[in-house]
Nucleic acid binder design. Structure first.
Length: 130
RNA sequence: CAGGAGUGACAGGUAGUUGCUGGUAGCAUUUAUGCUACGAGAGGAAAGUCCGGGCUGCACGCAAGAGAGGACUCCAUCUAACGGAUGGCCAGAGUAAUCUGAGGGCAAGUGCAACAGAGAGCAGGUAGCCAUACUUCGGUAUGGUCAUAGUGAAAGGGUGGGGUAAGAGCCCACCGGUGCCUAUGGUAACAUGGGCAGCCAGGUAAACCCUGUCUGCAGCAAGAAGCAUAUGGUAUGAACUCUUGCAUCGCCGUAAGGCAAAAAUGCUUCGCUUGAGCCUGUUGGCAACAGCAGGCCUAGAUAAAUAACUACCCAACGACAGAACCCGGCUUAUCGUUGCUCCUGACUA
RNA sequence: GGAACCAUCGCCAAGUUGGUAAGGCCGCAGCCUGCAAAGCUGCUAUUCGCCGGUUCGAGUCCGGCUGGUUCCU
């Protein structure tokens, strides 16, 4: 019994869900291309594109290209996407996520983009719920 | 009150909830992670990368070698240094406050100037003017001359008088400009005078070039250390050969490395923030700035932290915009709010 | 982050020492042909990426912006 309890504790401690720290970031263009090409589900909205690849690792990548604007606008787009991601982080399945920003993201309010994000997650079947 | 000129400051704030990146302290354990508390967390340009410096590596015998290349160029001061700043001088713009200026040398040398025009670089002579000769009395030829006309961005001083066949710095007076000498003021650039000379000497050096000053080359993806992976091996003494030797050349010299190792790939750590630092006061200076005293520690990330939401304030959901080794400048972008000083005009007292 | 370079007609481009922008393809018009193609002739840059400066005069020289490309990885 004790061992089992310890195991549960271990699992909880090693379960990275709940903190963005535990998601390893996607860095190189090779990794990004891997997610783009082998993604199990993708969903497009006017504000961003969500790529989801099922795997045993926890990985995230936020992308803001030069089309969005200068460095300030790119940083803001990535921050907004990160805020969306952190909000529902404890309900996500294992896998690699890539969020690509679009120029319309900066002009729309947070509540609208939040709805779009939740809808995209549903369509990609990334929620943990049964 | 209206219109200007200069120089500063700020770059949203407050409260709450949920989060991010470092630091310090404590606790826990699987010993590199988690939790809790406290405090910190982008700019005036962080930008462009246009200059200068620190720092690091390479080079480093001659170090103040030589030349090339590059940059700058009125004077003085400031600075670690600068192509920067401050104050002046000169030139230009403006009624003025004030602003703008790559602002040495073309009386060292070489080159360049399309078109137009007679002529564009040791000046020249188209029209014109004058004299002489000839004459068919229209003019033609030769010589003198350049004031006047025309061309051009620019035609070798200006005005007046004398002079002459006609004219001309040919001569004279005044003015402008140039060189030399000199007096006064100023640290100096230079300014204001005086004398003498010669008689005018064009523009262009962001054309070559000359004078003077500076300059070794590269950049934190510099460079150092650790772990893992696979590759690779002439010779064993020297020589040969290979690789490297950070722009060029001369003389001198003949370097370094080849398992006690080298280079490649991936990851990590250091470099990485206490510094020509900031703030306040005071002293010196017209000022840039410097000295002294006291106080402060103020981002250090790594696909890259400052966010999301709610409420209120406000003329305003705020302009331009995100540190990436660090400083000093320059340049460019910028919605506004606001302090101080000065100038001109109008009106009132 | 650092370093180097480029921009000329719709496309490809020349333009050395500053003097009024060659050429080819495409397009348009004409000739030729029964009609076309080919060929021949002619036309097409008012602003040389943009803004200033030097100069009598800048595609060219100098400074600053804008856009793009390449290298270090």
């Amino acid at each position: 019994m004790l061992l089992e309890e310890q195991k549960v504790e271990k699992d909880w401690r090693y379960n990275p869900i709940g903190k963005i720290k535990h998601f390893t970031r996607i860095k190189t263009s090779k990794e990004f291309n891997g997610v783009y090409n082998r993604s199990t589900k993708t969903w497009h909205t006017p504000y961003f594109v969500l790529f989801y690849q099922r795997s045993n690792e926890y990985k995230v990548g936020f992308v803001a290209s030069k089309k969005i604007g200068n460095a300030v606008h790119r940083n803001r787009a990535k921050r907004l996407l990160r805020a969306h991601f952190i909000e529902n982080i404890d309900q996500l399945k294992r896998g690699s996520y890539v969020l690509v920003a679009k120029p319309a993201l900066l002009n729309e309010s947070y509540s609208v983009t939040r709805k779009a994000y939740l809808h995209a997650l549903k369509k990609c079947t990334a929620f943990l719920q049964n």
